[in-house]
């Protein structure tokens, strides 16, 4: 039989725990609601026009005869960020993946959809990281501090978009050329797209619009192929006058897996 005193102790501690938990929860909710939309405080995001990508990729497949070619944007990403390429696909880190998707109805056509880090507003990876090595930067970029990462890989499990890669082996083995401006990683840490953060920072300092490597490559490729516009658009979501801001505000852009409430800042149109 549980004594009265013991009951009080248990009940007391349970209440304490509940109060503590609820205050935490409230704080978290509050921070979620009060998202700043001040244009001068940039919140970086990206828009992917799936139609454009499909068009470009179809052309590329036709040109090369390779059913699964690596587009210029992905190559530019690899070059820019020293992302190695390995023959074993299971270990190959890809920050920018071009995936083939179709409707499940018989005879539907394939779409080519790029998948990169979605830079969620409520990033599950940052939520679960035990050391805060992964975190949401003020400008919305999800960063990984490789110096702090312990390589537990829990973030990869938590990420709903398969955006993260683990360094199973030394990246130097898979590199042919090195971009001196960015680092490489060592084996044992997790890495992913960071919107070419060095370019973003530099652009902000100079007061111009930043363009990550993939976006730059996409623009060049669009020009080369004579498209009207490029498939990838990068910019400040908070700014309603920016190109990306306008498109998002048409409400046509979709997020991936919206039901999880992660609120990615990479939007897809025509998906």
């Amino acid at each position: 039989m549980i004594s009265r005193r013991r009951f009080l102790i248990i009940a007391g501690s349970a209440t304490g725990a509940v109060l503590l938990g609820s205050s935490q929860l409230e704080k978290a909710l509050a921070s979620a609601r009060s998202e700043s939309s001040d244009p001068s405080k940039p919140l970086w995001g990206m828009i992917v026009d799936v139609d454009q990508c499909t068009e470009c990729m179809n052309q590329l497949v036709a040109e090369t005869g390779n059913p699964d070619p690596k587009p210029e944007c992905a190559l530019a990403c690899d070059r820019e960020n020293n992302v190695p390429e390995f023959r074993e696909k299971k270990w190959d880190p890809q920050w920018f993946k071009m995936l083939k998707v179709r409707s499940n109805l018989e005879g539907s056509e394939y779409l080519w959809v790029p998948l990169l880090c979605n830079h969620c507003r409520h990033a599950p990876c940052a939520q679960v990281c035990p050391t805060k090595a992964t975190f949401v930067r003020e400008d919305g970029i999800i960063m990984i501090d490789y110096h702090r990462c312990i390589g537990c890989r829990y973030c990869m499990i938590a990420c709903p978009y398969n955006a993260r890669n683990f360094n199973f082996k030394e990246p130097l083995d898979g590199l042919t050329e090195i971009n001196p401006e960015t680092d490489r990683r060592g084996h044992g840490v997790v890495e992913k797209c960071h919107f070419c953060v060095h370019r973003v920072d530099r652009a902000v300092k100079e007061g111009v619009n930043p363009t990550p490597a993939c976006v730059e490559a996409c623009q060049k490729e669009a020009e080369k192929r004579g498209f009207e516009k490029s498939a990838l658009i990068f910019g400040n979501i908070n700014d309603p006058n920016s190109e990306i801001g306008k498109i998002i505000r048409t409400s046509k852009a979709k997020q991936l897996r919206p039901s999880l409430g992660t609120e990615p800042k990479v939007y897809y149109v025509n998906l």
Binding site: P42, D145, D201, R202, V204
Partner: peptide, 13 residues
């Protein structure tokens, strides 16, 4: 510098 660069949007410089 590394901490600032990684963690601060303006900290790269």
């Amino acid at each position: 510098m590394r901490t600032q660069t990684i963690r601060d949007p303006g900290g790269r410089f």
